[in-house]
Simulated assay, not measured.
Amino acid sequence: MTDPERERLAALRAAVPLLATRAYLFSGGIAPLAEPVRAEMATWVDRWAGDPLTHRADYFGDWGRLRTEFAGLVGAAPAEVAITENTSRATNLALRLLGLPAGSTVLVDDTTYPTMAWAALRHGLRVRLVRRAPDEAAVDAFAALTDPGTSCLAVSHVAALDGYRHDLADLAGLCADRGMRLFVDAAQSTGAVPVDMARDGIDALVSTAMKWLLGPPGIGFLAVREAAAAGTPLDVGYVSARIADSYQLTELPPVPSGAAGTEVGLAALPLLAAATAGIRLVRAAGVDTIADRVTHLVGRVVDGLARRGLTVLTPAQPRWRAGVVAFAVDDAPALAGHLREHGVDVWGYPSGRVRVDPHGFNDDDDIDRLVEGIDAWQTRR
């Protein structure tokens, strides 16, 4: 890593005050608050208190800036992006816009986020589950279950359960060969690893601001390539209809096609500029630089867990993982609570799984604190 890259990561770390006292290692759940994000939220509230009309005059300015930032991050055109309230809402909208044939089959694997499968079923599609072997490419398993009635592959780029990372280029090649759409939930990858819809052959992508993009909860993202938007938006509202002072109540107004037509009413206005600030922090540090740091830290976490005899659920090979590390432990919530007492923030699930998600602002000292806390836990037991 070059000196300028280290300086950018140091600046990113300095923007997160919490890191001065804690090793925060759960960015895949909710990002810690960065100072520029907090400042934008405070500015919005202050302006609302002092002069509400200043916001009224710029409703769509913050909206457009956020759309442009996210589009630039994922290699989409701004017109192909919509702002939603969360990833699940974006997922349902994406399936509507893709316009997949009724009764056709959507392939998912056992790491696909459940909303993708449930939304497909709700939209009158069939869902077929593909089982892949750990630490192996999924493309062959998907290919084996593809038939003429298969219209789409729906995958989580990086799985929330175990951190498995799909090779999108391989999946895109299969989709192009078989005439299928590639639909990607990138909530655990945007901001942590490079994602480019054009390069990676992604037809539809959904994500969230509140994780690796360092933004606030309440903002989701939908991106559908213009060429893939065969369906039409179902809902309509004054934003999507672009109405002004006059309108007809007995005629349906024209509504834009594609992602733009799904924005039917006002977004969460106090959050738009804050979400933009989060993405700008990520882009200023450089997603490639963040990805390199994350790869290094994840490797240290995986090695440290293995040396302590813990069962690591995340793939051993670096090419099949990104920023999410999961490991098995009998009393996961208790271990997470113990680590919090030692200034280390992770997440423990009642099912017996702990998640550790280092971001680009984390460093080796944070990982040292994690493994020292685990050592203390094992000694105490």
Rank of each mutant, 00 (worst) to 15 (best):
H296F: 12
H296L: 14
L297Y: 12
L297W: 13
V298Y: 12
V298E: 13
R300G: 02
R300V: 02
R300S: 09
R300T: 01
D303E: 15
G304N: 11
G304T: 04
G304L: 08
G304W: 09
G304C: 11
G304Y: 10
A306K: 11
R308W: 05
R308T: 02
R308N: 05
G309D: 13
L310Q: 13
L310H: 12
L310F: 13
L310T: 06
V312S: 07
L313E: 07
L313R: 04
T314E: 08
A316V: 11
Q317T: 14
Q317K: 12
R319L: 13
R319D: 14
W320R: 03
W320G: 01
R321Y: 11
A322K: 01
A322Q: 04
V324S: 01
V325H: 09
A326I: 00
V329T: 14
D330I: 00
D331A: 11
D331Q: 10
A332H: 08
A332P: 08
A332M: 10
P333G: 06
P333F: 09
L335V: 02
A336K: 04
G337M: 04
H338W: 15
L339F: 08
L339V: 02
R340S: 12
G343S: 06
G343Y: 05
V344N: 07
V344P: 07
D345I: 11
V346S: 13
W347C: 04
W347R: 12
W347N: 06
